[in-house]
């Protein structure tokens, strides 16, 4: 079976890859492009570890086909920091100890960025519901939510 050629933009860089039409975007990112920061926790859209943005919209990359990336803008955890400097959200996750094992962390950071892009001043409840699709089994979410709300505050320049 012949593979499909896909041209896409990942974290701002034009990228080409070959994939089977049935391959998920997650599989392409991890196995073809070695962007292993995007994690697989369930393969069914229930855990959020594979969260990426497609044309600015937050999605689970396990529920997107690689071929659907044609002409799209993909954002992954590898594109969150800029010029070798951590994003505020990354700094706040570290500062608040908002990770233990860290496997959910890339997905949560991508999701938090999407949240704050949409809503720069979320309430605790809004943050909790927006991030309900990002499972964390280690932290009980307390420190994650604190990191998210503190990030929002700093990013609004209200710190």
């Amino acid at each position: 079976m012949s593979k499909t050629h896909v041209t896409t933009t990942i974290n701002g860089d034009v990228t080409e890859f070959l994939c089977e039409p049935a391959d998920t975007l997650l599989s392409v990112l991890r196995n073809e492009l070695q962007l292993t920061g995007t994690k697989e926790g369930c393969g069914s859209g229930d855990c959020g570890a594979c969260s990426v943005t497609v044309n600015g919209r937050l999605v689970c990359s396990c529920l997107v086909l690689g071929v659907e990336a044609q002409g799209a803008e993909i954002g992954t955890i590898e594109g969150i920091e800029s010029a070798e400097k951590l994003h505020t959200i990354q700094e706040k996750f570290l500062e608040h100890a908002a990770l233990q094992c860290g496997i959910c962390t890339p997905g949560l950071i991508v999701s938090t960025k999407a949240l704050l892009d949409e809503n720069p001043d979320p309430t605790e409840e809004e943050a909790r519901y927006y991030l309900a699709g990002n499972l964390c089994r280690c932290t009980g979410y307390d420190k994650i939510i604190r990191a998210v709300l503190d990030s929002a505050k700093v990013m609004r320049g209200a710190a």
Binding site: G48, S51, V54, V59, C60, L63
Partner: peptide, 9 residues
């Protein structure tokens, strides 16, 4: 329907 991520699709 589903999470924020699922809502995106």
């Amino acid at each position: 329907i589903g999470s924020t991520q699922v809502q995106g699709r």
